[in-house]
């Protein structure tokens, strides 16, 4: 027994819970910001009243991210090595190098957009909002790509991974936004309370994203069942070690149950949409946990 412990070098899961939380926060931030942009950038007037709040929520969510990322580094004080302006070197083939640039500039883009909404400057809000939407999508797309560009890490090494991350971000962003908007309603004057039809409208958007997410995850699992030994191992892990976050939380509570709620008559009521939102927001956290940890877990024992 001792012999096997000594000679079979066990390995750690190197990107762990903080990184999963980071992916979830960045995703929710991106989703929230996309909703914010619907009113001022894409001209859908009914979403205008929540644009300012949604944009600020996206900024707050993203401000937590540097703490997670920087303190997850082995050498915290060397975080400056990621910035080419400080060090003079830039490794363009590394997705983390691009990610640093995006994570550093995306809150600035959102802050400018928020300020322009506050000043009711429609023209420039549209321009800077559009730039910030691209930043929002890129920032979350890169998290999926960072996981996907490791050929030995399943289930991430597929072209669908980044898309799955993005759609998950979209729906969890809307979900979290709805829950927080509802909480906000308890603290604001009656005149500022949210229009109930808005919640149903956001629920419809969420349903659309949910269908795409289910389609993508179905495609991923079909791919895995006809896959390599490693992919079979991922399936084994999904049904054993990671049953709770993936099967139960993500697929069950995060996708199937909200779908049932949103397509039923409850999907047109505020209570139903609110419940589905909370379930999706937590369900997508299960997806982040699963997708980040499983890909490393399958390789740690050998």
């Amino acid at each position: 027994m001792e012999r096997e412990i000594v000679s079979n070098a066990f390995h750690h899961v190197n990107w762990g819970i903080p990184i999963a939380v980071y992916f979830w926060l960045v995703g929710s931030s991106a989703g929230s910001f996309v909703i914010s942009s619907l009113g001022w950038v894409f001209g859908i007037k009914k979403f205008k009243p929540i644009s300012f709040f949604a944009s600020n929520l996206a900024i707050v969510q993203l401000l937590i991210v540097p703490a997670l990322l920087v303190f997850d580094l082995g050498r915290v004080m060397r975080a400056s090595h990621l910035f080419p302006l400080v060090t003079g070197f830039w490794h363009a083939t590394a997705s983390l190098a691009w990610g640093t640039a995006l994570v550093a500039t995306y809150p600035i883009g959102m802050a400018i957009y928020s300020y322009l909404i506050y000043k009711h400057n429609e023209k420039w809000a549209r321009v800077f909002g559009f730039i910030a939407v691209i930043q929002a999508i890129s920032t979350h797309w890169y998290t999926g790509i960072t996981m996907a560009l490791n050929p030995s890490r399943h289930p991430n090494h597929t072209a669908l991974a980044a898309l799955l991350f993005l759609i998950g971000a979209f729906i969890s962003g809307i979900g979290l936004l709805i829950v927080i908007l509802k909480i906000r309603d308890y603290f604001v004057k009656a005149a500022d309370k949210l229009d109930p039809t808005m919640i149903v409208g956001l629920g419809r958007l969420m349903l659309l994203g949910l269908c795409v997410d289910i389609f993508l995850v179905f495609s991923e699992f079909i791919h895995m069942t006809y896959g390599t030994e490693e992919e079979f191992h991922v399936l084994e892990l999904v049904s054993t070690v990671f049953r709770a976050p993936v099967l139960e939380l993500y697929l069950g509570l995060g996708l199937a149950l909200p779908l049932a709620i949103l397509v039923s008559p409850y999907g047109k009521r505020n209570g139903g949409v609110l419940l589905a939102s909370a379930l999706i927001a937590t369900g997508i956290f299960g997806m982040r946990l699963g997708w980040v940890l499983i890909s490393q877990f399958s390789q740690t024992i050998f």
């Binding site: 082995g74 060397r78 490791n150 390789q299």
Partner: peptide, 12 residues
């Protein structure tokens, strides 16, 4: 090295 572990995750 900043200890980001991207290389550890990348290594098959």
């Amino acid at each position: 090295c900043i200890g980001c572990r991207a290389c550890i995750v990348a290594c098959p």
